[in-house]
Design a protein around this nucleic acid. Structure first.
Lengths: 310, 310
DNA sequence: TAGTGCATTTTGTGCAAATGAAAAGCACAA
DNA sequence: TTGTGCTTTTCATTTGCACAAAATGCACTA
């Protein structure tokens, strides 16, 4: 059976971004819920969970079948075919060409290979993609404040790409919002929300302690995001929760485009700090939790000015 | 000479948005610099000032010529033909159909005539515009946090501020964010930013004191928004500023249904409170300003649970 | 020397058809 | 009932082209 460069089955029809995304989330869900081999996988159930129709879910499951993670029952339907604890979603799923391009453009700009002012027509042949793709990317950059439209023709990159300014401001904002979340009068530690977060942290911590490096940097980013979003969600204030989620979304791509990796020790420390904060929250000691959280964020910001951070 | 419904010369070729925008800015520049009738108007000079090429500037000047504001020299070139102090740019320049549609959609949503979840295909026939236009509008709403893409198909409008909970949460969020803005270490009272805000408040206040009612409810909304956004902008933290702006957008969505009127006395009080806060900020007494602001927001929230508020 | 008017080139937008993907419906099986 | 497998329908993205608008160059003049 022939495989292409990314290790995917070449025979599979091209998967849509939504399908790939769903496949990843389904995989994570299976892993975090600890399903046993042989468990039935229900399409309508997953479709409800993720708020989409059955079509893309079916296609996503097909991807997983192609990877040998799922298999058909003898009669019909699908079941879990093997243990997924050791599987890293990033390794087996195709990566989006759009995200690759995003990183590439960002790198090119920071290396000075792209001028400050660019036109769409200039970028099209350079990256060998259609105008639509370029537009989409530029709009995304613009939403993140990394680029802005010039009147008339062209776009201009911001002075500092991932500049220290933006970093400082981002951390300041997060301290404000997340601490306010803990202090909110409606704050309630929701075990159903926080338990999976705790499990994910414990899993990561044990991975580190076994001396293995993390499967992917992206994994830590996700767990980190789930921690902060989970806390904010407990605040009972949708706007605080939204603000935290928004920050995470904004930073996701920039982080993954970053060059420096977070050293293992720092990662371990972050993980422990998160667990400590979770402990304080679950014990109802929100003031102590707030102090820990503030300290955690401050350290993180000092640690990594223009680098990835917890 | 025939004129269309907006009072424009019908004969003129359709002007592009950039041209209209330039015409307005040129007009404001002429007015604010107090040019005398007969002053020469230089195209390359204006082009440099606004960072565009000469083409759109020429076209913008054509618009002004058509309005009798500029006239050709006998030989060549253009000159100012009349005093512009009394001219309101809004009155003479064509208005963008996109802007009108933006308001219309917002109003329809706030009145419940649009469902929370919409598809592009559903909006196209409803507003009788092409997909491109719908798309552009939805992207704009999305950038303002009023709408978000659903996975798969469709878009979803943000939870509106209906209901006690949402209101309370919104005020809690604003207190957190705006007070943090005042406390930000990078906070600098920028006169260039705050002076127009102050002037607008004084204008409104004097209008009230003369016993006249406000020109439009929308006017107070805009001034109010500019106050809060202006303060946040002084924080030097773009995320704080964005968060405030987003809240205002949400509120605007709510109020574009626009039936509730703020009683005159409450409006006057809000106005005075704003001015007091501005005074404290300009005097560098940010702590006092913060106390005032917190009080102001708290009162506003108590005053108007499900109604318009400052 | 800077500005104008016009011509040319470059760049971006709008539209419609074609393609691809998701939603919705239905018969049937466990 | 709930889930599956398939089909049909609806919806959205892509693509290519025609057109509109902005940028640029040049000859000419005050």
């Amino acid at each position: 059976m022939s495989r292409d460069t990314t290790g995917q089955l070449a025979s599979a029809a091209a998967a849509s971004p939504l399908q790939i995304d769903l496949a990843r989330r389904i995989l994570e869900r299976i892993r975090d819920s600890g399903w046993a081999v042989g468990t039935r996988v229900s399409v309508p159930d997953l479709a409800r969970t993720f708020g989409v129709s059955r079509s893309p879910v079916s296609a996503a499951l097909e991807l997983l079948v192609a990877q040998g993670i799922l298999a058909g029952f003898e009669t019909r339907g699908l079941q879990l075919a093997r243990d997924v604890a050791e599987i890293d979603p990033e390794d087996i799923l195709p990566s989006s060409p759009l995200e690759d391009l995003y990183r590439r453009m960002m790198r090119d700009r920071s290396l000075g290979e792209l001028p400050q002012d660019v036109s769409e027509a200039e970028l099209m042949p350079r990256y060998e993609v259609s105008r639509g793709v370029i537009r989409k990317l530029l709009l995304r950059f613009a939403a993140e404040g990394l680029v802005q439209r010039l009147p008339g023709h062209g776009w201009r990159f911001a002075e500092s790409l991932v500049g220290e300014d933006a970093y400082r401001e981002s951390y300041e904002f997060r301290i404000v919002v997340e601490c306010a979340a803990l202090r909110s009068p409606m704050f309630r530690a929701d075990p159903q929300l926080l338990a999976p977060v705790r499990r994910a942290h414990e899993r990561i911590l044990s991975t580190i302690l076994e001396g293995k490096s993390l499967a992917s940097g992206d994994e830590w980013f996700r767990v980190n995001a789930s921690f902060h979003e989970g806390l904010a969600a407990c605040s009972g204030n949708r706007f605080l929760a939204d603000a935290v989620r928004q920050q995470n979304n904004l930073r996701r791509l920039q982080e993954s485009a970053g060059f420096e990796q977070l050293p293992g020790e720092r990662l371990e420390q972050s993980c422990r700090e998160h667990l400590a904060i979770l402990g304080a929250v679950e014990a109802g000691e929100t003031e102590w939790a707030e102090a820990l959280l503030r300290q955690h964020l401050r350290q993180a910001s000092e640690f990594a000015s223009p680098a990835r951070a917890p």
